[in-house]
Amino acid sequence: MPPKTQLDRTAVGLMVLFCTIWGLQQVAIKFGSAGISPVWQAGLRSIGATVLVFAWASLRRVRLFEADGTLGAGLLAGLLFAGEFALIFLGLEYTTASRGVIFLYTAPFFVALGAVWLLPHEHMRRAQWAGMALAFAGVLVLFGENLFGPEGDAWIGDLLIFLAAMFWAATTLTVKATVLARASAEKMLIYQLAVSALVLPPLSLVLGEPGVFAPSAAVWASLAFQVVIVATASYLGWFWLIRHYPATRLSSFSFLTPVLGVLAGGILLAEPLTPAVFAALGLVGLGIWIANRPAPAAR
């Protein structure tokens, strides 16, 4: 499938589905943290997903071990991926899912900035910048009252997750700007999962984490959701998308995730759904529409 310059219905539908899953991820991490240490939980997730992606690739006869020049870029992407999720899981120990998600979803701006130098063929028009700004304004409306008034140690978690956003953007740019862009989605993902599966458990031991300290049905269910749905199915789809569609346009769509995450919190955690939620939905939807409009035809 040749790379495309616009998002078609397939890409839009998949991005809405994935953004919903990623919004639920914040709730799942919180549930899992009630019984599993943060970095250990991230490591278990990567180990389980590595096994599943290997099985999937074997069934589809995808070649994962052929020499294709992707090893260096793949290891770099894997280390960035491990750093991203170590920071996310640690950050959520200090801050709420609602606070954390706004910092995590600054990543599309880092992708857009990096694309200026690394992906010149994905030039950002002024309308796209304006659309992304509108979408981010929607997120600020939703979380603004808390963004500028952190209490206690919340700023530590905010900072960790803000750094995680930079790691996420760096991973996306590594995939798009190197030979990894020619690799299969399965190979892109297995580099990241396998490296993080090797890095995160030893990091957990170095940090002195207790590991699994209060197992329960909810804890194991949240981990299973992260392994099967998030880290395997949605990430395979995401890396297939960024291989075939413009990274900047896909990243602008990801602003749906924090809003959908708040909706999930309202449904699953009985968090209040205020008028700001619906205002944010409107701004995010408008921003995504503007950012993904085709360029006007030249006269």
Rank of each mutant, 00 (worst) to 15 (best):
V212Q: 09
S216K: 12
T178H: 11
A169L: 02
A183L: 04
S184C: 01
A185K: 09
A214L: 10
A217P: 09
F167R: 02
Y191P: 13
V206H: 06
V206I: 14
S184R: 05
L205E: 02
A181M: 09
F167K: 02
A154Y: 02
D153C: 06
A214W: 08
E186M: 02
A181P: 06
P202T: 08
D158S: 07
K176Y: 01
T172M: 09
T178A: 13
M188F: 00
W155P: 01
G211I: 05
P201W: 01
V206R: 00
W155M: 12
A164Q: 05
A170N: 12
S216E: 14
A169R: 03
E145S: 13
F213N: 04
A218Y: 05
A183G: 04
L173H: 04
Q192P: 13
A217D: 09
A169P: 01
G149H: 11
F213K: 10
L160R: 02
L200D: 10
S204T: 12
L203C: 01
E209Y: 15
A194D: 03
L163K: 07
T174W: 01
A165S: 14
A181C: 08
G208I: 13
G152H: 13
L163I: 14
E145T: 15
S216H: 08
A183E: 06
I190C: 06
V179S: 08
M188W: 07
L198N: 05
